[in-house]
């Protein structure tokens, strides 16, 4: 990608295809479904990288369950916006609308847990609010919020154990929480097409995360919660450098066989 990155919100810049949304769909809803679907897809992909490398067998099973829940959510959401495989495999990096938070590399287990904690807390608040409404995503959110409640519980349990475990685990968990903190402002930017304004969820998110971190004996990070780049972030199709490599790996096989079915 070159210099054009500084423009704001280029909706489909660099996209190889623009998968047509199902006819009759409200484009704003479609865009929102795409953004939420991308969150779920990208995080599932990252969690899938753990397979075979988890700290203990029981955790292999737990992480895979979370990844499978997210992948299921992604497939439903992307199908609202078009063909799930075209959207997943044929879009360029700049056309992805996921939060930068979910694309962050796994790092050590502490980074993965911090990412899970931040994201699942947001996702649960958002889906609970969507489920309470009567918008087009209410039904999906009602099912997903139960899954996400478990993801949040999993992340909280581990945050407590890593924060209040050994000296090493506390240090690692604090480092991870600090490192990912700058990606935690983005989820609360306005997102059109939803009958919930994400900005209204921010206080509850901060309260919840603060409570868990405090209970775990961790310090709530003090740094800024958004980057200094005014062009925007993931929701505007602006991503971090490792994301392109993640996509290259995810997409290469599908793209090597244009038109093939699997």
């Amino acid at each position: 990608m070159t210099g054009t990155d500084t423009t704001t919100a280029p909706a489909t810049a660099g996209a190889a295809v623009t998968a047509p949304a199902p006819t009759g769909a409200d484009p704003a809803v479609t865009a929102a479904a795409l953004a939420l679907g991308d969150d779920a897809l990208v995080l599932a992909q990252r969690l899938g990288e753990w397979a075979g490398s988890a700290p203990v067998l029981e955790e292999e099973v737990a992480l895979a369950n979370i990844a499978l829940d997210l992948l299921g959510q992604a497939r439903i959401l992307l199908s609202l916006a078009g063909d799930e495989d075209e959207l997943a495999f044929l879009r360029e990096e700049r056309a992805f609308r996921n939060l930068q938070l979910v694309e962050q590399p796994n790092g050590d287990f502490a980074h993965t847990i911090a990412r899970q904690l931040y994201f699942s807390t947001y996702q649960r608040l958002l889906y609970a609010a969507l489920a309470a409404g009567d918008g087009p995503l209410a039904g999906l959110a009602a099912k997903a919020v139960k899954e996400v409640a478990y993801h949040q519980d999993h992340a909280e349990q581990w945050t407590l154990r890593l924060g209040d475990g050994t000296e090493e685990s506390r240090r690692r968990m604090q480092t991870a929480c600090d490192a990912l903190w700058r990606y935690t402002g983005e989820p609360f930017q306005p997102l059109g097409g939803l009958d919930v304004d994400p900005t209204t969820l921010e206080t509850a998110w901060l309260d919840s995360v603060t409570a868990v971190l405090t209970r775990a004996g961790l310090t709530v990070p003090a740094g800024p919660r958004t980057g200094a780049w005014r062009a925007g972030a993931g929701r505007q199709g602006l991503h971090t450098e490792s994301f392109g490599r993640m996509l290259a790996e995810m997409q290469h096989l599908h793209r090597s066989h244009p038109g093939a079915t699997w």
Partner: peptide
């Protein structure tokens, strides 16, 4: 898993 050619195949392989 990370390279499965469709989302359906990815889910199956993960499971």
């Amino acid at each position: 898993i990370t390279r499965a050619p469709s989302l359906r195949r990815k889910a199956i392989l993960m499971a």
